[in-house]
Simulated scan of single mutants.
Amino acid sequence: MTPFAEVIGDPIAQSKSPRIHGFWLEKLGIDAAYRAHLVAPDGVGAYLADRRTDPDWRGCNVTMPHKQAVQPFLDTVSRTASRIGAINTVYVQQDRLIGDNTDGEGFLEPLTQWLGQTHLFRMARVLGAGGAARAITAALVDHGFTLVVAGRDAAKCETILAQLPGEHHATTLDHFADPTDFAFDDRDGLFDLVVNTTPLGMAGREPLRFDFSHVPPGSIVYDIVTSPVRTPLLIEAETRGFRTIDGLAMLIGQAAAAFRLFFGADAPREHDAELRALLES
């Protein structure tokens, strides 16, 4: 039999994970498989009970709407996943099912060159209050960021921030839709991020209403949406001269962390350009 891992969710046909993991398995010559598997919301427990008894199953990535629903069926959860309150990776360790979250690691990866520098102040404006926002805000706070988190419901943003050390701020998405005349600090040595974690701007979804008067000079604009890769937010940011990071950067980064857990090998990242071309085709 062939070892395999999966990604589960509902819906799941749109997932790019099988292409990513399949690409790496082929490059490394590993005899294993990775596939998408549709699991309905009421089928999570049965799915994990069945896979637990399969000696060839190495684990699964977890996408919406199961990132919290899987936890009662696992043997243990990592400190990272517990802190975030969401699980995006389940792997097998000595016949035990372990829940983890690699979203924060994947998100931070393309920021490494800046995170290694010393700054006078770091601030991130994070749009969204879902599971991805929870992972991203926790990762940013660990690297010294002060946060402004905006969602449709400011109370939900407050709940996220209440779990994090430091003094942060919650608001609504509408706050960033309207222009501001705020005078930003433009000293050298500041590190500002604007991060979209919402599905707004995704193909088939309503656009993200965001006014660029809210973006400090020298900011990096980061959109985790992957379809399209170049979202309207990133296109406008580029035309205004801001540095940008697209959603494939986080997707590939978090997948690499999961690949190591599933298959015991490092993803061949020297082929990232080829992989990106495949995912964008």
Rank of each mutant, 00 (worst) to 15 (best):
S213R: 08
A183T: 10
D211K: 12
G189Y: 14
S219G: 06
V215I: 15
M202Q: 04
I224T: 08
L190M: 11
D185F: 03
A183G: 05
V229Y: 09
L234K: 00
G189C: 10
P232K: 00
H214E: 08
L234W: 01
D185R: 04
L200T: 10
S213K: 08
S227Q: 09
R205G: 13
G204M: 04
E236C: 11
N196H: 05
T226R: 00
L233R: 00
A183F: 11
P207F: 10
G218M: 15
N196C: 05
F191S: 11
F212T: 14
R240A: 13
P207M: 13
G189V: 13
R240C: 11
R187A: 14
D185S: 05
T226P: 00
V225G: 04
L233F: 03
D211M: 12
D188Y: 09
Y222C: 04
L190W: 05
E238W: 00
M202G: 01
F191K: 08
A183L: 11
D223Q: 07
L193S: 06
A183Q: 12
S219P: 05
L200P: 07
D186C: 10
V195L: 10
I235P: 02
D192A: 13
Y222M: 04
L193Y: 01
R230M: 05
M202D: 02
D188R: 11
P232I: 02
D192N: 15
R240P: 10
D186N: 11
P228Y: 09
D223C: 10
P228H: 05
T226V: 00
P217T: 12
H214W: 14
R209M: 13
I224P: 03
R187S: 14
G201R: 02
E238T: 04
L190P: 03
V229A: 14
S219Y: 03
G201C: 13
D185V: 06
P217S: 15
P199K: 01
P232Q: 01
G201L: 10
F184A: 09
L208I: 09
N196E: 03
V225N: 09
E238V: 00
I220G: 01
D186H: 12
R230G: 03
V229H: 08
S213M: 08
Y222S: 03
L193H: 03
R240Y: 09
P232L: 01
I224A: 08
P207Y: 13
L208S: 06
D192S: 14
D185N: 08
T226I: 00
T197G: 10
T198I: 10
L233Q: 02
E236M: 08
F210A: 05
L233M: 07
G218K: 15
T239V: 12
L234A: 03
P232C: 04
T226W: 00
E236Q: 15
F184R: 06
F210H: 02
T198N: 08
R240M: 13
L234G: 01
P216Q: 09
I235G: 05
P216H: 10
S213P: 06
S227C: 04
R205Y: 15
D211C: 09
A203M: 14
T226F: 00
F242Q: 07
E238L: 00
P232Y: 02
G189W: 09
L233T: 02
